[in-house]
């Protein structure tokens, strides 16, 4: 199950709608092993496509180094689907390389609009999970939360 703050959900939806019809993407970092998303980092989609995304490799290196220095990991990896439902595409599954991450998909087209779904993708197997949206984290964690 993914437990996630409502402000982070809103930020992902806002970013997805702003970039529509181009797919948007990003991560939410959290302390390694905590399973709690805290710091939302929008990533540049170098593909600039309506049906594909790829993180800018240079930005990815910087963000991954920063996470490593802060003992964080990508708790959530998100992207939008601008013309299909929120289910991992074949390339989403083939290229998934973070077995500990929650893969969140934000659909921006009707009739699925804004029906966010979350999946684990391990060894090319997809398992959908429940998304529990909460209005607050523990106070010290709420303080650490960053919404871009």
């Amino acid at each position: 199950m993914l437990t996630i703050h409502t402000k982070l959900i809103s930020a992902m939806i806002t970013q997805s709608l702003k970039d529509h019809p181009i797919e948007t993407c990003g991560i939410i970092a959290g302390l390694a092993g905590s399973n709690l998303p805290l710091r939302l980092i929008p990533m540049r989609n170098v593909a600039q496509s309506e049906n594909f995304f790829m993180f800018d490799p240079q930005q990815q290196l910087q963000v991954w180094k920063e996470m490593s220095a802060r003992h964080e990991e990508p708790v959530v990896i998100y992207h939008s689907h601008t013309g299909s439902e929120a289910y991992p595409s074949r390339s989403d599954v083939e290229l998934a390389a973070e077995p500990q991450a929650h893969y969140v998909i934000i659909p921006t087209c009707s009739p699925h609009k804004e029906e966010i779904r979350s999946f684990r993708i391990v060894d090319q197997m997809v398992i959908e999970e429940r998304v529990q949206i909460v209005r607050q984290y523990q106070p010290e964690l709420e303080f650490q939360m960053m919404v871009a």
């Binding site: 593909a47 049906n51 594909f52 993180f55 990815q60 991954w64 390339s91 290229l95 390389a97």
Partner: peptide, 10 residues
């Protein structure tokens, strides 16, 4: 030398 799988999909 850093190796990072690209984060990509459709």
């Amino acid at each position: 030398l850093t190796i990072l799988p690209a984060v990509a999909g459709g």
